[in-house]
């Protein structure tokens, strides 16, 4: 504990004396005032610019779109939760489907290699999204753990169009993140990528090679 006290003492007894605390003006990171449609357009433009795929659906037909995605990408084993309405609806729709549904409410120690090597895709809900940067935000839960959006080669995320907000700052403020953070909160903006080999962009270095965002629109506006 000595280091702690020494460091704090040196900081407190600063030789040039106490510092003035400036006020911060956050207006530059908020107040975009985009319409819902502008938000969706901006989100789509930005996330597709980094190789994210966007598929538009309605609240009623999104599971049919999901089936098409699974078929198109030859997904045989899909990891998903059991309790959140998104995986509940997906499970119901895929019941008689030849896609094998993989339960994720198991401790990772019990199925690490299985998850790393045999799961083709992970399906998750999202908390919402950010229009300005084309980012999804997720708070993983015991029902939808952290690794299913990272380990399988394809991540399919379900997003409600009206859950897209303007900026990251707006999300943090509107949802009161500061009053209680989860174990892990994530922004995800596209599939995993690297430019470490001579600035050449390559996707799928450690995380998913593909990110598919299924945007659910209320029926009337879709």
């Amino acid at each position: 504990m000595n280091a702690r006290e020494n460091i704090l003492k040196r900081l407190r007894e600063r030789s040039d004396g106490p510092l003035q605390v400036p006020e911060s003006d956050f207006s530059v990171v908020t107040g975009r005032d985009w319409t819902p449609q502008e938000r969706v357009e901006r989100f789509e433009r930005l996330i597709t610019s980094v190789h994210g795929e966007v598929i538009h659906a309605t609240l009623t037909d999104w599971t049919a779109r999901l089936e098409e995605v699974l078929k198109a990408k030859s997904v045989r084993r899909l990891a998903l939760g059991r309790e959140h309405p998104v995986p509940v609806a997906a499970r119901a729709a895929l019941m008689d489907h030849d896609v094998e549904l993989v339960d994720v409410d198991r401790d990772i120690e019990d199925w690490k290699r299985e998850q790393f090597e045999t799961v083709d895709a992970g399906l998750t809900s999202t908390g919402g999204a950010i229009g300005e940067t084309g980012s999804l935000w997720l708070w993983p839960t015991p029902d939808e753990p952290r690794l299913i959006s990272l380990v399988p080669p394809i991540h399919i995320a379900v997003l409600d169009a009206d859950a897209i907000e303007d900026t990251f700052f707006d999300v943090v403020e509107a949802h009161g993140w500061a009053s209680g953070m989860p174990t892990n909160a994530l922004l995800i903006s596209g599939p995993s990528k690297t430019a470490d080999i001579e600035q050449t962009l390559a996707y799928g270095v450690h995380g998913p090679r593909e990110l598919v965002v299924l945007i659910r629109h209320p029926r009337e506006s879709a």
């Binding site: 401790d107 990772i108 980012s135 753990p145 892990n184």
Partner: peptide, 24 residues
Amino acid sequence: ATGQHVTTYFNMISSPRKPGEHDG
């Protein structure tokens, strides 16, 4: 840093695995 609007991941960690959670 790299001229990106945003990076692929922004990872915010506030605790170790809690009882009932399955990874971390």
